Simulated assay, not measured.
Amino acid sequence: MSQTVDRALRILPLLAEGPANLEQVAARLGVHKSTALRLLRTLHEHGMVYRQQDQRYRLGTRLFALAQQAAENLDVREIAHPHLAALNERCGHTVHLAVYEDGEVLYIDKVESRYPVRMYSRIGKPVAITVAAVAKLLLADLPEPERRAVAERLDYPAYTARSTPNAAAYLKELATVREQGWATDFGGHEESINCIGAPVRGTDGRTVAACSVSAPNVVVGTGELLELLPLLRRTADAISAEYSGTTPPPLQKANS
């Protein structure tokens, strides 16, 4: 990278901390004020920085517009699919990716199990929002007032004896999911199907999608399924890193 480009790029995280004047920018870069002024003028011409009336510089609106445009053009399904396929290749079970849209949790990708007993879930189909692991992850990350409002307006069908019975129980479970960072559905929707899920996060740390591994209990028990949790979480972290352009965080223990 050229020295000029390097210096210009170093100005942006500096101004992200707050407005700074010419002297402060020059001192942080370790350059003469004339050099700093040249860089700031160029960034200003491209809308990357803005000079305030007090002669201090801040990040420009063009930078935020570019960031928003880039975020809107990201396709989490396209990014996630190779990771989901690799996860399926390693574990053999059904893998899903889901998002929360317009009050529903929808599957947007699925990689089928290699075993003959398969799930009937379909891409584009809403999930059972009160019991599905992916739904718990997506709703657990909502702001508290919205989370409570959603929980209180939902119906709570008794799919099985293990289904979530009411809003109070759901909110309690969402709090646990929010704290531990992963979720389960052990027979809550179908007695014979168990599932574990992990969140996919965006640049702001918020959950943008959730991925899961599901399997019939005739194929794998809950204990064996939970042993796949570290692998699932590594997959979710890898998707998050590629989606947000960051380094994946260190994996926590499954029981943390």
Results as ranks from 00 to 15, higher is better:
202 G>S: 11
181 G>Q: 05
203 T>P: 14
220 V>K: 12
226 L>W: 10
171 L>T: 05
186 F>L: 14
233 R>E: 04
238 A>V: 04
213 V>S: 02
188 G>C: 08
232 L>C: 07
200 V>K: 03
183 A>N: 02
225 L>G: 04
233 R>A: 07
151 A>N: 03
203 T>Y: 11
192 S>E: 15
156 Y>A: 00
207 T>Y: 02
188 G>P: 04
171 L>R: 05
172 K>D: 11
204 D>P: 07
195 C>H: 01
226 L>N: 13
168 A>N: 12
181 G>E: 00
193 I>Q: 08
207 T>W: 06
191 E>V: 13
182 W>T: 10
185 D>S: 11
206 R>A: 12
154 L>I: 05
166 N>I: 11
141 D>C: 09
231 L>I: 11
174 L>F: 07
174 L>G: 05
182 W>R: 09
237 D>P: 06
156 Y>P: 00
192 S>M: 13
211 C>K: 04
181 G>K: 02
203 T>V: 15
218 V>N: 11
227 E>V: 12
194 N>Y: 14
215 A>N: 08
174 L>A: 05
214 S>C: 12
225 L>M: 08
225 L>F: 07
214 S>T: 11
233 R>Q: 10
178 R>V: 02
158 A>V: 10
208 V>R: 10
141 D>Y: 04
230 P>L: 09
149 A>C: 10
235 T>C: 14
216 P>E: 04
185 D>H: 04
144 E>Y: 06
231 L>N: 05
237 D>A: 15
143 P>I: 03
235 T>Y: 03
156 Y>C: 01
178 R>G: 03
208 V>K: 08
180 Q>Y: 09
190 E>C: 09
202 G>R: 07
141 D>N: 08
221 G>I: 10
199 P>A: 04
149 A>I: 10
171 L>Y: 00
175 A>H: 00
198 A>W: 00
194 N>T: 13
198 A>N: 03
214 S>P: 05
216 P>V: 08
149 A>T: 11
160 T>N: 07
143 P>S: 02
195 C>K: 01
156 Y>S: 00
153 R>T: 13
220 V>R: 13
233 R>M: 12
188 G>S: 10
171 L>A: 03
185 D>F: 01
166 N>G: 07
174 L>H: 01
210 A>H: 03
215 A>Y: 07
219 V>G: 05
199 P>Q: 03
145 P>A: 02
166 N>Q: 11
207 T>H: 04
154 L>T: 01
142 L>Y: 02
207 T>M: 09
236 A>R: 03
